[in-house]
Simulated scan of single mutants.
Amino acid sequence: MALWGTVRSDGDEANAVNAVRAALTMRASLAKLNNEWKERGIASFQIGIGIHQAEVVAGNIGCDSPHEKMDLTVIGDGVNLASRLEGVTKEYGVDLVVSEAVRSKLGDAFLLRSADLVQVKGKKVPTAVFAVLGENGTQRPPGLETFEDGVKAYRDGRFTEALGRFNQAADEGLGDTLTHVYQERCEHLIKNPPENWTGVYEMTKK
C-alpha cells in the first residue's frame, strides 16, 4: 500500500495525479523487467493496482516495542475500497484502475477507459471504475469510442445494441479481456432479461 497526503498533502488534485503517475512508472518498470526476464527464460510477472481517494484515519497504529511494532499507516473505508479496486483488475484483465473519486481529480492528464460500475464485496454504494491507458497524449486504441458507446448502451439496459457495439469494438482492434467480459454479460442478459436493471455489477470476490 502506498499513501499520498497523510503527513504532507499537495492537494487532492496533485495527490491523485502523483499516485497515477507513480503507478504508470511501475507499469513501465515492470515491462522492462519482464523483457529482461524473457531473454533469460524467466516467466513474466503481472501486477494489479487500484487507486482511490477518501478521508481516512492516519497515525501511528500498532503496539509499541518491544512487544510488537508501530507504523504510520491509514485505516478506514477508503482503504478497504482501494483494496477491492485492486482486486477487480483481475476481473477485467487490466493492470491499473481508479475510482470515480480519483478520476474527478485528474482533469485531462490521462487517457482513461470505462471499466464498470461496480458494487464491491462489503460495500453498499456502487463505484464507477476506470482503466488508465496512459498519460494524456497516449495514442487512443482503435475501437475505444465504439466501446464507450457500448458501455453507455449496456448501462441503459439496451443489451442487444450494446453487444453490437462491443462486437464492433473487437473487430476494430479492441478485442481484449474487458471487451470480452461485456460481450459475455450482454449475451447472458439478452437471454435472461433482468427485472430491475441498474447497470451495477456486484462483485462477489475480494
Rank of each mutant, 00 (worst) to 15 (best):
A153H: 02
A170Q: 03
R158T: 02
V200I: 14
E184M: 13
R158L: 10
G175D: 06
G164V: 12
K206C: 03
E202M: 13
I190Q: 10
G199V: 08
H188L: 12
N167A: 06
K152H: 03
N192T: 13
G173R: 05
E202P: 00
N167K: 14
E195A: 13
T198S: 15
E161V: 05
E195R: 12
P194L: 09
L174H: 12
V151D: 09
M203C: 11
K152M: 03
K191G: 03
H188F: 15
E187T: 14
R185Q: 11
T204G: 07
E161H: 05
Q168C: 00
T177H: 13
I190G: 03
G175F: 02
L189Y: 01
L174M: 15
E184D: 15
E195W: 08
E202T: 15
T204F: 07
V151A: 09
L174S: 11
C186T: 09
P193N: 11
C186K: 04
M203L: 14
E172A: 08
V181L: 13
R165K: 15
A169G: 05
G164M: 05
D171L: 13
R158I: 01
T179E: 09
K206I: 07
D171Q: 15
P194E: 10
T179S: 10
K205P: 09
R185F: 00
L163V: 02
D156N: 10
M203F: 06
P194F: 00
T177L: 12
G173Y: 02
R185Y: 12
A153F: 04
G164Y: 03
F166L: 01
E187V: 05
Y154N: 02
L189H: 06
G164K: 08
I190F: 05
H180M: 13
R165F: 14
E195M: 12
L189A: 03
A169K: 02
A162W: 09
Y154I: 01
R165N: 14
T177N: 11
V151F: 00
A169D: 07
G157M: 01
W197V: 06
D176G: 14
E184F: 07
A169P: 06
L189D: 09
P194W: 09
T179P: 02
L174R: 15
V200A: 06
I190C: 04
N167V: 03
C186W: 08
G175I: 01
K205R: 15
A169L: 04
